[in-house]
Design a protein around this nucleic acid. Structure first.
Length: 257
DNA sequence: GCCCAGGTGCGGC
DNA sequence: GCCGCACATGGG
């Protein structure tokens, strides 16, 4: 039973939308009838939800997250958020990612952990304002077109957004449930649980610790294979795989003599 | 001290 | 196109 405090300032509909409760994740598993490893992953993370976040906040969050560990990412996002106004909800004070206009008119924080990413964020804000970054359009688009527009197409691609970040934004804010973001953890997970989805030489390179990310070309190819196999169950499965791999941990294999 | 982190852009070939 | 590197800095 989901209950929402009456003084929270959030309607039940808003909470349900955020938790994707308008989309029954159970039917997603239907496609995986003949995928025992996938079903095992899904059932061991029962109750997992794909959040439906605000696209702008989601974009900024994942641009910042690239190649940063989670605690540093959180610090950087807090600094960015504090460029905006403090908000209050349910008696708690908090900050949210500021709107593009606010970010554009803010001075850069002194120690923001961001490096060149600050300029990627500024560019994204300009694109959001001039309309070349159009979340409404990306929401209506197919997965393939939206991904291509964010990563490949000159004219619409967003600096700081590569294959993985695009997939995160599409999955966590633009309703593309087949999106399957492949970071280093998920790549290791694929190698361990679904090696048949990946070219043999990549399996070898990942498991020996020589490789932790894919080129755009490799990513596109593996992504297509994964989506052909898991379809709209992919997003939820990815999240379970990520959680499993984080839990298991990873020790880079030592080169032996 | 050294290695890693929810990757990506860029320059050199 | 592919490869190697810079990026920023806290935590194990």
């Amino acid at each position: 039973m989901l209950t929402v405090r009456s003084d929270s300032g959030l309607s039940l509909e808003e909470v349900a939308k955020f938790l994707h409760l308008d989309e029954d994740h159970l039917w997603l598993a239907e496609r995986l009838r003949d995928e025992p490893r996938a079903l095992e992953l899904l059932t061991s993370f029962k109750g997992m939800r794909i959040l439906r976040q605000d696209p702008w906040s989601c974009l900024i969050s994942y641009i910042v997250s690239s190649s940063l560990n989670i605690s540093v990412t959180e610090k950087a996002l807090t600094m960015i958020s504090q460029l905006g106004k403090e908000k209050t909800l349910n008696g708690h004070r908090f900050w949210a990612i500021p709107d593009p206009e606010v970010l554009l008119n803010s001075p850069r924080p002194r120690k923001d952990f961001l490096g060149k990413k600050w300029y990627h964020i500024v560019l994204a804000a300009e694109r959001a304002i001039d309309g070349r970054l159009d979340f409404e359009d990306l929401l209506r688009a197919t997965y393939e077109r939206a991904w291509h527009d964010m990563v490949i197409n000159q004219g619409t691609k967003i600096m700081g957004v590569g294959p993985k970040v695009a997939d995160c934004v599409l999955l966590f804010s633009l309703d593309k449930m087949e999106s399957f973001p492949m970071d280093r953890w998920v790549l290791r997970g694929l190698v361990q649980y679904f090696p048949d989805l990946i070219p043999e030489e990549i399996v070898g390179a990942v498991s020996s610790g020589m490789k932790s990310s894919l080129s755009v070309r490799e990513y596109e190819k593996v992504s297509a294979t994964v989506r052909a196999r898991f379809g709209c169950s992919g997003g939820l499965l990815q999240e379970c795989l990520f959680m499993r791999m984080r839990k298991l941990g990873w020790q880079k294999p030592r080169a032996s003599a």
